[in-house]
Design a protein around this nucleic acid. Structure first.
Lengths: 128, 128, 128, 128
DNA sequence: GTGGTCTAGACCACC
DNA sequence: GTGGTCTAGACCACA
């Protein structure tokens, strides 16, 4: 897994997990990889993965069964969607709008790009 | 000037300057405030302002005339626009699209929000 | 480490690091000293070392692994050589030639001097 | 006149004057431009020119006749040559040698370049 | 432990 | 007056 340096790594892991849940790759009740296992897979310090899991547990998206492992919690899909949506609308969107306006970018042109993006990424979707 | 703590202050200063240039408040050849002057104005340490100026000079957006001060460089407007635009398209846009798709947000609804945003900010526009 | 005062210290540190890379004392993938460690070693403020590292990172010669430290980047040797060589040919050489011509210095005599220089420095070579 | 930012401007002016003397464009006894005149010509603060003249006067290369102006001093040619030569050999040459060695540049190839340089610049020589 | 940012204050060379 | 560099020391987030 590759990380950009804009956000902390543990948040990028969180996001990766949220994606799995939103795309129904992982559904409620599924066991997710152990801290160590994931750490090895994505070549990251176990502490960092631990931090991601703790974060997600606090948000109620995953649950720990002691000695067994972490599981996708009940209502995880809805909670994740809710969490990311409010986050997006509160934080990302205003900045996004500000930039579009400042750079004088045509919103309709963006729509075209978005369509292409959706189609172009179709095949990659189930990888990884 | 107020700073959020998501980005480092010196980058927020950079952005502030870029905005001045993009909105033509500062145009090519204009002298910009001296390091110390700006530092006092926005209540920040001169080192921090210095860092912003150095950064902008490396990008070719401002230029130093020795012993005199910093000036908005030639082609600063075009360079700034270019720089921010490619940056936006390469980095922000893909992430933005990815999130919209993942959260299944309606693009046309966004357009409505954007219109409101633009109008809502109308009155601030001519302040500085 | 001793510094002359013609150039800023942080650039002398940069040069020192480039030399280590060019002489293969440090090779691609090597971890270089942490900011604090080097700062103590060469008796300089950590900020100054930080500045050197940031500079080198921008040039793509070293890379940061978050929370771990700085490493000599891929192709660092080639990049460094390339960077210094073009720099030398574009900036130093013309000035050098201009001066030699102006002072009417014999080029072949210089060659002799250079040989002596090379031999005279021979014993220092393997120190660090 | 254009200045690079490696050296202070006043030293670049000094050098420019030395060149005029070494190329015999200005010879002993010649009146050189007044501080103000030169300052206007090369678009520089008069104080800066003044500093150059003072510097040269201290070195005995130009002389001030009060109320009249500055003149190229006796033995200016020899003194300039001497001054620049020792300067070159003491400061520039060792650095130059060090770099050539580090970058593993062939000295004989340099000689070829120098020849070309000499010829290529032939026609520019008497301008300015 | 690592880097990264910031403040405060000093000193210097240059214009 | 201007920028530029450096030190000292602090604080923070991240791995």
């Amino acid at each position: 897994m590759e990380f950009h340096k804009k956000d902390p790594i543990f948040l990028q892991i969180v996001e990766m997990i949220c994606e799995k849940i939103l795309t129904k790759i992982w559904v409620e009740g599924d066991k997710i990889p152990s801290v160590r296992e994931l750490a090895v897979n994505i070549e990251v310090n176990p502490n960092t993965v631990m931090r991601s899991y703790t974060y997600l547990q606090e948000k109620g998206i995953i649950q720990n069964r002691r000695g067994i492992g972490y599981y996708v919690a009940e209502h995880a899909y809805d909670d994740t969607l809710e969490l990311m949506k409010t986050n997006f609308i509160r934080n990302d969107l205003p900045l996004f709008f500000k930039t579009i306006k400042l750079l004088d970018i045509d919103f309709d042109e963006l729509k075209g790009r978005f369509k292409k993006f959706k189609e172009g990424k179709q095949e990659d979707e189930n990888q990884q």
